[in-house]
């Protein structure tokens, strides 16, 4: 029966904004009334006129950045008084420099928070609450003229990208059917979550990566590099490939069960292994007691099911209604606790 005015007030504006995702909105509402609310009556009456205001600082992964920006833009259409600033710092940089010291309210991450980061945050009394907001798929891409490597096994990728890959490695070194030409590699910079994720899933060890490649934080640079040479290979998030499917060719990955091409469907169904991954956002639980932050997080979860925002605008795989409902329940419980 511990309830807070903040929550019920914002609940109302949540309802007004929920139109597009009616199902989740309704479900959230029933859940909310089920929790019981002692002093909600007053604020419910004036709810519609309650303008949310305040600042929200979001830091973290450059992979989640476009999604957070898209959601923030939508959110501000109905809550123009909420001042949202989003900074793309990389998952680890965001936790280390901004989130754990308490400088930012929400940190995005393209991987789960590490234990060391959790401890770091705890030492500053910052408790993170994990929310999965979308599924990302990494795409390995090759030049459109490359017709030999359109299907690759995880082992072949490991040979190409592993720490032991020498500078003068040729395609023929990996598979003798392939041409005897040097491989040109374009990949994620070491600071990015994409790098962590790729090394962990393909090489089985985080950070194990060849030094002989062109590291960059911008997907566009990778595409340009791969376009530039028929013997080039690169990898990046699915979003970019989704919007520019003709510039480069995506490699079908064989994880033992036959090659699977990356697409919204194969990633959502979990067929596209091992290169599909969940994307996270971590609100600071202490700040969830603030109305506008709690409401923004609810909105974020709602939008995570939206085909339009997640898939079309940003190019990630949306969450299912059930998954989002579960996240919403957990978030509401956390908000309740902070109340």
């Amino acid at each position: 029966m511990t309830d807070d005015r903040a929550r019920t007030a914002s609940r109302r504006s949540f309802l007004t904004t929920a139109g597009a995702v009616g199902a989740v909105g309704l479900a959230g509402c029933t859940e909310e009334s089920g929790n019981g609310n002692g002093e909600s009556g007053g604020s419910e009456d004036t709810g519609t006129s309650t303008e949310l205001s305040g600042e929200i600082d979001i830091t973290g992964s450059s992979t989640v950045f476009p999604l957070a920006t898209a959601v923030a833009e939508q959110f501000r259409k109905d809550n123009s008084e909420v001042d949202i600033s989003i900074q793309s710092t990389g998952s680890g940089g965001g936790f280390e420099n901004f989130f754990c010291p308490g400088e930012s309210d929400i940190n995005n991450a393209s991987r789960p928070i590490k234990d060391s980061e959790k401890e770091n945050c705890m030492s500053n009394d910052v408790v993170s609450h994990e929310v999965v907001v979308a599924t990302d798929a990494l795409t390995v891409v090759i030049n459109n003229e490359n017709d030999w490597a359109t299907e690759m096994t995880v082992e072949e990728l490991e040979q190409i990208w592993g720490p032991d890959a020498s500078a003068d490695q040729t395609w023929a070194d990996v598979n003798d059917q392939w041409p005897d030409e040097e491989i040109e590699r374009f990949g994620a910079a070491e600071t990015s979550g994409t790098f962590d994720y790729f090394t962990e899933t393909i090489m089985g060890e985080e950070g194990a990566h060849t030094q002989d490649y062109e590291p960059t934080e911008t997907d566009r640079t990778i595409v340009q590099g791969v376009q530039g040479s028929p013997y080039a290979i690169g990898y990046f998030g699915f979003a970019y490939f989704f919007q520019n499917p003709d510039q480069v060719t995506a490699v079908a990955i064989d994880d033992g069960d036959g090659p699977v091409k990356p697409s919204l469907e194969t990633a959502a169904s979990g067929e596209y292994t091992p290169l599909s991954r969940p994307l996270f956002t971590y609100p600071n639980e202490n700040r969830l007691s603030e109305d506008h932050i709690a409401e923004f997080m609810r909105y974020f979860i709602e939008q995570s099911t939206s085909e339009e925002v997640v898939a079309e605008q940003v190019g990630y795989v949306p969450r299912s209604d059930e998954q989002a409902q579960k996240e919403l329940d957990e978030l509401n419980a956390a908000i309740e606790e902070m109340g």
Binding site: D57, F65, T69, A72, E73, R76, S80, D83, I84, S85, I86, Q87, S88, N97, F98, E103
Partner: peptide, 12 residues
């Protein structure tokens, strides 16, 4: 110094 990459309203 942590200036935001994207912001939707001018500084207050």
């Amino acid at each position: 110094i942590g200036v935001a990459t994207t912001k939707f309203s001018p500084p207050s």
